[in-house]
């Protein structure tokens, strides 16, 4: 059985188990599902987040459930909710099953192939612009970093922090606007050259 099928099976089994099995068993079957994915489908398991994070979520939700649920248990003369604790465990196991299902679906979807097949002119233009923008991200980050350092040297101190943020915001917008004009010109020249080459080759 491959990783995808195993993770699909585990996720569906967990969701069905949550419906059919009593709430007290939800956490054990969740741990069993996690263990199977951990050792059987490592590729899928890597996308599910760190185990420590799931433990944190489990802790928070069981504490909140125990505190805010219907008070049905007394422990050390404090009334708390056993039903709420169980509901917290169910919520975490359900979320784990759904996240593993989502992770599998998103890893299986052939997004790149879909993008290559797009023929609509506006969508093609959008894809080209996204590629241009992705290349501009490091440029923008570098410009932000340089501007931030310069402002920090010229106007140091905590009291100048709001002014620095304001100047950085205006500088970033100004830089983006000026860059936009040059990007537009580059795109226009590239399109013009492409149409000229088309005429020559035909």
């Amino acid at each position: 059985m491959n990783f995808g099928r195993l993770s699909l099976l585990v996720a569906v089994a967990l969701l069905v188990g949550l419906l059919l099995v009593p709430a007290v068993w939800h956490l054990p079957i969740g741990i069993a599902g996690w263990w199977i994915l951990r050792w059987g489908a490592r590729d899928v398991h890597r996308n599910l987040g760190r185990p420590w994070r799931w433990l944190q979520v489990l802790f928070v939700l069981t504490v909140l459930g125990g505190f805010f649920g219907p008070a049905d248990t007394q422990w050390l003369s404090v009334s708390w909710s056993w039903a709420g604790v169980l509901a917290g465990c169910t919520m975490v196991v359900r979320a784990f099953a759904l996240v593993s299902l989502m992770s599998l679906i998103t890893s299986v979807l052939p997004v790149r192939r879909w993008v290559e097949r797009v023929q609509h002119p506006v969508l093609r233009r959008l894809i080209e612009v996204v590629v241009v923008a992705a290349n501009l991200v490091p440029v923008q980050l570098n410009a932000l970093g340089v501007a931030s350092m310069t402002l920090k040297e010229r106007r140091p101190g905590l009291l100048n922090f709001p002014l620095r943020i304001w100047l950085l915001a205006v500088h970033s917008a100004l830089h983006a606007a000026m860059l936009a004009e040059s990007v537009a010109l580059d795109m226009a020249i590239a399109a013009h050259n492409a149409s000229d080459q088309g005429k020559i080759s035909s």
Binding site: A180, V183, A188
Partner: peptide, 22 residues
């Protein structure tokens, strides 16, 4: 050549989108 305003539109979308993305 296509209308330069169209390229300006996409140029502004690209740079401000890149800034937001960054």
């Amino acid at each position: 050549m296509r209308n330069l305003e169209t390229y300006r539109f996409w140029g502004y979308a690209a740079t401000f989108g890149a800034l937001w993305g960054a």
